[in-house]
């Protein structure tokens, strides 16, 4: 069994996010492990709780959340990228006196150090960028 770190840099509207989701499912389906999902740049929008998708379209943030929950994945959202794009958890919302968390449960805000760590620990790192 091998482990992967996936870097997701594309918004839910991008091919990059969709490809990454399909790749992640195939990793798990092939009996391998996901060491970490690292959402970076516009990729942090995949953790947005306020996205409404048309009923006949795939809701990527919810699809990611479901994958994360059902496989207990470590899903890190880059805090610098996230704050710039309005994605905050309860702690950050309180700190900046915003209107509450805008981040889906299952995702965790953290720093780029988590990407370095994943690069050292995972067997393969793969970057999905738009």
């Amino acid at each position: 069994m091998s482990s992967f770190c996936l870097i997701i840099q594309g918004a839910p509207s991008s091919s990059a996010s969709l490809s990454a989701l399909n790749f992640a499912k195939a990793v798990i389906g092939s009996g391998h492990q996901i060491h970490r999902l690292f959402f970076f740049q516009d990729g942090v929008l995949n953790a947005c709780a306020n996205i409404v998708a048309p009923q006949d379209e795939l809701h990527l943030p919810k699809a990611w959340q479901q994958l994360i929950r059902s496989n207990a994945l470590d899903a890190v959202v880059c805090a610098t990228s996230a704050l710039k794009r309005g994605i905050v958890d309860k702690t950050e919302s309180d700190r900046y006196e915003l209107g509450g968390s805008t981040m889906l449960e299952g995702f965790t805000l953290s720093g780029l150090g988590q990407l370095v760590e994943a690069g050292l620990e995972a067997d393969r790192v793969i970057n999905f960028a738009p």
């Binding site: 992967f4 790749f23 990793v27 738009p130």
Partner: peptide, 20 residues
């Protein structure tokens, strides 16, 4: 290839360089 074969290919190689 399908996504599962993509995963195996990624493992057969030492590293993946994603040009974008």
């Amino acid at each position: 290839v399908d996504y599962r074969e993509f995963v195996s290919l990624a493992l057969q190689c030492d590293k993946i360089v994603s040009w974008n």
